[in-house]
Design a protein around this nucleic acid. Structure first.
Length: 601
DNA sequence: TGGGGTCCT
DNA sequence: AGGACCC
């Protein structure tokens, strides 16, 4: 008998430890954090006609995500419904929680997905702590959270996993990976507990060696818990590996990276016929489940065959090899470094009908206001910024102070984009085909939008009339008749002040500005019922501590207002500080220099 | 069926 | 500029 030819099965590389955090029913939790009376009630968050998420009390009563409001009210008449179309509060909470988790990272590999998920690559922390273990007393180990301060950390038992594992009974001879994942599980537990203790938010965590596996495995124990995928990760003594056993039963469309389009093609290939749900339906689950195993073991399946199956106009290069790896539970993509600024900021609203120019102008104005406000929040090193506290003093000396907002742009968006989603005309039979296709035009973002001295309203007004109307006309040349279901306004193409995408060189940058013991003081402790979550202001202004250092770092990279030339009227009687390079009014230079003498090492 | 985001072609 | 993917 011929031995089975194992062609191009990719090899695993399990040298990382990755944690995936998922905040429990995030939007609902944000409202609960604002008003703890909501915690005991079935709570749902509404956007337009749907429930985007609901708390677990609501789920117990049969509510689900993405349910229609009317269905939800029918199923659970006493549900408390709150409006969540303005996502400012979610964005702010997401940023706070993300910065909290990021502050533990040594390598600054901390990546967000949406508002409620975060990956941390904690490989360096795990390896360091393994090197510290006392092999004679593993049960009484201590996990060091800060390299420079061995007293900061927590006690743990290195002989066992913390929290649930999958499978829960497994034997392996891979002791190295086992030990690393055990430490990973203890770290995950500590971070979950600290997150809840300091911010009030609960989370669900997955522990494994890749982004995909950590994300998938976290789902095993859902609210407020964690799951570690335990070794063996490779075949051992003729036994199927735990990775394969874990991933094989997933429906292919559930694997991150395999979206609806790819899943449809892959199902079609395995089933050799059109799945039933195809007819006329855009959304829908097939009843004919195709699993990872079905696909992996399909006739002649290989990276090459997948490449042929999936390659088409616009398809990414190497898609076959990528999917083939995923079918084996292999995902070598790295956890991205934390980014100083987002690559895009957008605001959108959807409409039942929007078909007259006055209405469009009104909407563009509202969207512009929101967008400029958002730009100021996310792209400006604000008044709470450490370096700018000093400027505040000068403002007071100038005795004009408060009126003028101050701060520096961390990045300048260069492009503005207007997108719309036209509603398709009626079909001959009177039905309407739903389309989610968008059309868009981009232009240079006029530099006046970046003024911090004008009001948001004035800038928005100017933007609408000098730029957006023209863009809208190009997008919709017809005089009328367009029927828009969505308008989206975005700024993109961020030119960062430092010219870098990241804060710095990437390695060990975290330790430059992190002081765990002080970061955590900024968060309120949730001992009592009525404790409120840390508000943005309490979080950012209380003490100049660790996250203050982040602000400082950001400020150092920030655009120099005078050099950049896009803020017109800056102070002319200014001198540059020889130490930090900051532009300082002449009369204030002595005081500024003393500031360095006092604070610099 | 929302209001966001990322990356790739 | 659009399309795929993610929440």
């Amino acid at each position: 008998m011929q031995p089975v030819k194992r062609k191009d099965v990719p090899t695993r590389k399990d040298d990382r430890v990755i944690l995936h955090f998922d905040y429990d029913c995030f939007y609902a939790s944000v409202f609960e954090a604002e008003n703890s009376a909501l915690k005991e009630k079935p709570l749902a968050v509404q956007q337009k006609q749907i429930i985007v998420t609901c708390n677990y009390e609501a789920r117990r009563r049969g509510l689900r995500k993405l349910q229609l409001i009317k269905d939800a009210r029918h199923i659970c008449p006493d549900v408390v419904i709150v409006l969540g179309e303005d996502i400012s509060r979610f964005r702010d909470a997401s940023k706070t929680l993300y910065n909290f988790l990021r502050s533990f990272s040594w390598n600054d590999r901390a990546e967000r997905l949406g508002f409620d998920e975060v990956w941390l690559d904690v490989t360096d922390m795990i390896d360091y702590n393994i090197s510290l273990l006392n092999s004679h007393d593993l049960a009484h180990s201590f996990f060091v959270l800060e390299k420079d301060d061995p007293t900061q950390g927590f006690a743990f038992d290195a002989t066992c996993y913390e929290g649930p594992t999958t499978p829960n009974d497994s034997t392996t001879n891979d002791e190295v990976l086992t030990l690393r994942l055990k430490l990973g599980s203890h770290l995950a537990s500590h971070l979950r507990n600290e997150l809840e203790r300091k911010t009030g938010y609960t989370s669900t965590v997955g522990v494994s060696t890749s982004k995909v596996l950590s994300k998938l495995v976290g789902n095993m124990h859902k609210p407020k818990d964690q799951t570690t995928l335990v070794p063996p990760y490779t075949h051992q003594d003729g036994q199927v590996s735990n990775v394969e056993a874990f991933i094989d039963d997933y429906e292919i469309g559930k694997i991150p990276g395999i979206g609806s389009k790819l899943a449809r093609k892959l199902r079609h290939h395995v089933l050799q016929h059109e799945p039933d749900f195809e007819k006329g339906l855009i959304y829908g689950e097939t009843k004919e489940k195709v699993t990872v195993k079905d696909l992996r073991l399909a006739q002649n399946m290989s990276a090459d065959l997948l490449e042929k199956l999936l390659t088409g106009p616009g398809s990414p290069r190497g898609i076959g090899a990528k999917i083939w790896s995923l079918l084996h539970g292999i995902d070598d993509t790295e956890v991205n470094f934390a980014k100083a600024v987002p690559s895009q900021i957008s605001i959108e609203d959807s409409y039942i009908r929007l078909d007259t120019l006055p209405e469009v102008l009104k909407e563009l104005k509202m969207l512009s206001c929101s967008l400029i406000e958002r730009m100021r929040i996310d792209l400006v090193a604000g008044e709470d910024d450490a370096d700018l506290v000093i400027l505040e003093r000068y403002d007071e000396l100038e005795s004009e102070a408060k009126a003028r907002p101050h701060g520096k742009w961390l990045a300048q968006p260069k492009t503005i984009r207007l997108s719309t989603r036209p509603r398709l005309p009626l079909n001959p039979d009177g039905t309407r085909t739903r389309s989610f296709k968008r059309i868009s035009h981009s232009s240079a973002l006029p530099s006046y939008v970046l003024s911090l001295t004008d009001t948001v309203d004035a800038l928005a007004e100017k933007l609408v009339h000098e730029t957006l109307i023209g863009m809208f006309r190009r997008l919709h040349p017809e005089k009328a008749g367009w029927n828009l279901s969505l308008v989206n306004l975005a700024v993109t193409n961020m030119a960062e002040a430092g010219g870098e995408t990241r804060t710095a060189n990437g390695r060990d940058i975290g330790s430059m500005f992190k002081r765990q013991e002080t970061v955590h003081k900024e968060f309120t402790t949730y001992a009592d019922e009525d404790a409120m979550p840390p508000t943005k202001s309490s979080f950012q202004t209380e003490e100049r501590t660790s996250l203050g250092h982040i602000d400082q770092l950001d400020a150092e990279m920030s655009v120099d207002v005078e050099d950049s030339g896009w803020v017109e009227e800056e102070n002319e009687d200014a001198e540059r500080c020889g130490i930090c390079g900051m532009s300082v009014p002449l009369f204030a230079l002595p005081a500024h220099t003393r500031y360095h003498e006092v604070t610099d090492d």
